[in-house]
Each structure stands twice: as C-alpha cells, then as structure tokens.
C-alpha cells in the first residue's frame, strides 16, 4: 500500500469553495438562433467543502445538481462565479477561469464518479486499461508499474486483481461501480465528486458501495461532494447537506441539524417523504402539490412558493436570500424564524 495519507489540514481551511456559481443556458429559437430566454440550471450557488468531509447535495431531478458537479470539473464552463480549489502546490486556483495547465493539475486532484456504471466504462477496454489510463495520460506510471498500481487499486475497492484482464461486460453493476471508483482514485485525488453513485444499483449493493466509499474516505482522507436524491443515503454519508431547488440552494446545514430542525419548507417536505420501515406508523407525508417548475420559466420570488403550504403574499414577488438562521444553518425562506417545521423523526 503506497497510498499516502495526507496530513489533516487545518479544519477550517476549505478545500473547495463554490462562489456565486451560475450556469445559464440560452434558449434559442428559429433559424438564426435568436436567444429568447435562459434556463438557469445553476443560479447563484455558493457552497464550501472541507478536507476529509462530505457535502451532501440533494434535490429533485432537474434541480441542477449534476450541472453543478460538471461545472466544478469544468466539463461545463460556468456563466459566472468561481470555483476555488485550494491546491497543495498551486494554492487557490479558480477552476472556472484556470488556464489549461492549471486545469490539468487541478483535475488530477478532483475526480468524478458517474451515476450509470454501465455507461461510464468503455466496453472496448479491459479493466486494466480503464484504470491505468489516468496514470498513463498524466505520466505517473506505465507498463509494469501501472499494472501494480491497478492491482493495488482493485484490492482497495474490494475486487480481485486477477480480474484486471477482463472487460466491463463481465461485471455486475456494483462491481462496475467499484471499478469506476478505482479509476477515480488512481491519481490520488483530494476531492471526489460522486454523482448519484448508488442510485443505479440494487439496494443491497447500495449499502456495500456506501460503506466502501465511507471506508475509503477515512483511509485516504478524501473529500466528497455526494449528489443524491435519496435523503436516507445522504444522511448516512454526509457531514453537511445542501438542498437544491430549481438551480438555487434553499438550505445548507450540518446533517443532524438539517434532518432534525429543517428551516425551509421544501426541506421539511422532502424529509416527510423518506420511507420508514414501520408498519404501525401512520402516513403523515406532506405531499407537495404540483410539479417542479420549468427552469426556463421559474415562478417569480421564491421558486417554491406555488407549492409551499406556508406561502404568504411576499413570497410571490420577493426572492428570499440565503441567510444564517441558526449558527451554521442557512436557509432561503422569509419565515425561517417563525415557522416551526418538523424534523425527520416527527413524521
């Protein structure tokens, strides 16, 4: 095992800071591609990830979670805002505007695991080629050395090194996701962006994969951005949780606080939807009326107001800012202080 443990940096020095990040897609119409509007996939999002910690990101489909992750990797160039990665060698680097050399360097320290383990492995490459590719491309190891490193990584994620000559189609979904994780870890990154890493897997395999991820985090001092729409999973892995709704963050808080005393009605509604294995429990779910709005044409004011059971006239024309409601807990609601919202155990 040659995986070096990074010395735990000062806890209050962040690893990644997302500052006022925006990604607006123009909506064009006609032959001349006239811009008629914008889809605000990510609209002024600020988040911070600390070394060795996990930031959970929850939200419905289409709330901009994946766009945010790809913007952090700069697979998507953000419209505005910055993504500051605190690199050990280069110091703070703004990924959103980094030059190619800096971007190459930062990407070694930031890797991403995708949702679908069936499309994230090239069917024409062996597991060895797939995991060794980052090593070769970044001129870290090749040939025999790369092979040894691949064997080591496979063991790390709980697969037999003998499997490295096989092709992806010989593996199950859970095994494939382990291969994806092994590839992401090949470059010894500091931060791993996990985009719904378990949602395509069977429930029993989900638990195994989550435990593997937690285990790897403590062994390698990794930081995670954990994207999911499964609140139970997020509670299990996250130190801090951010809730997104139509491109905006509506609440950020330490996991316990957010689950026990949510300060945003949307968070409350999400928490009420977590299924519980208790047959005697009466259903007291808060069914959210309506659909998630079209991000090309979101409602004015607070985006959640048409579906919010506590909505007041002000909500329809004034967007609430994200403010600190209790220490460490931020919510974007006009009535966070007045409302007494139910936590996850109150349902």
């Amino acid at each position: 095992m040659e995986i070096q443990l990074n010395a735990v940096p000062h806890a209050d020095r962040p690893l990644l800071e997302i500052l006022h990040l925006k990604k607006h897609y123009p909506v064009t119409r006609g032959l001349l591609k006239r811009t008629v509007g914008y889809v605000k996939a990510v609209d002024d999002v600020s988040l911070t990830i600390y070394p060795g910690q996990t930031l959970g990101l929850v939200g419905e489909s289409g709330s901009g979670k994946t766009t945010l992750a790809h913007s952090v990797m700069r697979g998507i160039t953000p419209t505005a805002g910055s993504v500051i990665f605190h690199d050990d060698h280069l110091g703070p680097v703004d990924v959103a505007s980094a030059d190619p050399a800096a971007l190459r360097h930062v990407r070694r320290n930031m890797q991403m695991v995708f949702q679908d383990p069936f499309s994230s492995l090239n069917p024409r490459m062996t597991v060895l080629d797939i995991i060794a590719e980052p090593l070769q491309v970044n001129q870290i190891a090749k040939g025999k050395a790369a092979q040894e490193r691949v064997a080591e990584l496979l063991q790390l994620v709980g697969l037999r090194p003998e499997y490295m000559r096989r092709f992806p189609h010989a593996f199950s979904g859970g095994q494939r996701q382990r291969i994806v994780v092994a590839r992401a870890l090949a470059l010894n990154p500091r931060l791993v962006l996990l985009d719904e890493p378990t949602s395509a897997l069977d429930v029993s395999i989900q638990a195994q994969t989550l435990n593997l991820l937690k285990d790897l985090q403590s062994r390698l001092n990794l930081s995670y951005l954990f994207i999911s729409h499964d609140l139970g999973v997020v509670e299990h892995v996250s130190d801090t949780v951010a809730v997104m709704y139509v491109g905006r963050v509506v609440e950020v808080a330490p996991t316990r606080k957010l689950y026990q005393q949510p300060k945003h009605p949307y968070t409350e509604a999400l928490l009420s939807s977590i299924p519980k294995p208790d047959p005697t429990r009466k259903k007291r779910r808060i069914a959210i009326a309506g659909e998630i709005p079209n991000p090309a044409n979101p409602p004015p004011g607070c985006h959640f107001h048409p579906r919010c059971p506590y909505a007041q006239p002000i909500c329809a024309h004034e967007a609430p800012p994200l403010r600190e409601v209790t220490p460490g807990q931020f919510a974007a609601c006009h009535f966070s202080d007045e409302l007494n919202l139910k936590g996850v155990n109150d349902f």
Partner: peptide, 17 residues
C-alpha cells in the same frame, strides 16, 4: 456525451486519445 468519454476528459486525456 457518454460518461466514459467525460471521465476520460476529466482525467486529462487529449482529444486525439
């Protein structure tokens, strides 16, 4: 747009590769 191509790009693979 396949994930494995995005993953390759994020691992600093060149366009040629």
């Amino acid at each position: 747009e396949a994930d494995f191509v995005t993953a390759a790009r994020y691992s600093n693979c060149s366009d040629w590769r």
